[in-house]
Write a protein that binds this DNA or RNA. Structure first.
Lengths: 213, 213
DNA sequence: GGATGATTCAATCATACGTTTGATTTAAAA
DNA sequence: TTTTAAATCAAACGTATGATTGAATCATCC
């Protein structure tokens, strides 16, 4: 918003995003961030006022476009009449999972950071949830249209499970790759997305067979 | 292992477990812990040597019995011939989810702590994974027996998704309750367990219908 | 009861933290 | 060129951290 902007502010956001993701918010000091960004220690408080506000801005910079993309994809689904379950789920999951292959941006770091936020103490978690409320409501109704015969309460539970699987991919995807000696690789974003969409869709629709052997 | 044990050491473990779960490992200081446990600051380093070792012991105290219970339940499944998918999944999920209703213990705190560990920086995460490796291998083969027609790679992906949903329940279950104004309540442990088992089982078996509308 | 080892305690260590200050540099406006 | 505001800088603020010390206390055994 200033007349001419040196990019110190953006370097701070980039470094903070990466270090928050790699080491956690609490474990990342302003000195780590300013060293990494090759900026003065005081620059954080000059540009952002506090560490908490820096974190909020790191988050706000990315979450808006991501959720916009979610709604855009959902609109695409609904434009062709009653949307399919798979289409709705993909609209929800794709924008975050695709961050992993964000072209030459730090989207991968943000993905990891956002995933971790789900399990962070309440203080930070509420920041995430404020932005998520609208999305949650919007997709809940879309799911009810896609699966009209299911109880709304079931859909809520199932969406919650799906979010859990998504968050786990965001934070521990590299671990899966290590564990399986690269035979499962979340870096194949579209393949991973298809797998998660199919798994969740089957879960939403419910078991197709009886239970006891 | 000493002759007579005052219970300072146990009070430290209990307080650390609770505070680590509520505020995060990094954000919990030894002074918070010792104040809560009504012990002297130096007692942590006397009994455990360091904060990291305290954390390891908090974790080691619980994870062993939990994983033993997992294997016991899995043995129960396999004792009756070829185990059903639901039985195997329940054997995997129940021991952690049931921590929420642990009788007068701090199991709920540990559940939250363990769930967060999945998304914690590598340093702490590896501690979790060392203990998890055997369980992971054991249940992978059990799943292959329960679903012999499925590719092993698919089962690995699906187990990963299931773990994600489980971890999300452990760390953000209270959030689901708040969001739904108590209409979804993870405190109903057996009901929640049944929902997750059914959801995952359907996901494992795959979609029962076509995709496009 | 005195000796011995285990535990607790207050006090302090050096280091790191987020934040603030006031001077200095930079760059656009007059 | 002078003026003015934005931006950067080194230095310090007070507080908190994990760790350590050596004396004091406790319980136990000879």
């Amino acid at each position: 918003m200033t007349t001419t902007t040196p990019h110190t502010r953006d370097r701070l956001l980039d470094s903070a995003e990466r270090l928050f993701a790699e080491n956690g918010v609490d474990a990342t000091s302003l000195r780590h961030i300013t060293n990494d960004a090759e900026a003065n220690l005081a620059s954080v408080n000059y540009h952002f006022g506090s560490k908490e506000e820096l974190f909020r801005q790191v988050f706000a910079r990315r979450i808006g476009p991501i959720n916009q993309e979610r709604l855009r994809l959902l609109d695409n689904c609904e434009a062709q009449g009653t949307p399919s379950l798979e289409c709705v789920l993909e609209a929800f999951l794709a924008p975050t999972l695709r961050l992993r292959s964000d072209p030459e941006q730090g989207g991968e770091h943000f993905m990891c950071l956002m995933g971790r936020l789900f399990s962070e103490p309440t203080e930070w978690k509420t920041i995430l949830m404020e932005e998520f409320n609208e999305i949650f409501q919007r997709f809940s109704t879309a799911l009810q249209i896609a699966l009209p015969e299911h109880a709304p309460l079931d859909l809520t539970w199932h969406l919650f499970f799906t979010i859990g699987a998504m968050a786990h991919l965001m934070t521990a995807g590299d671990l899966l790759k290590t564990f399986t000696q690269d035979r499962c690789d979340p870096a194949d974003v579209e393949g991973t997305l298809r797998r998660l969409v199919d798994f969740s869709a089957a879960g939403f629709r419910g078991t197709s067979r009886g239970e006891s052997p």
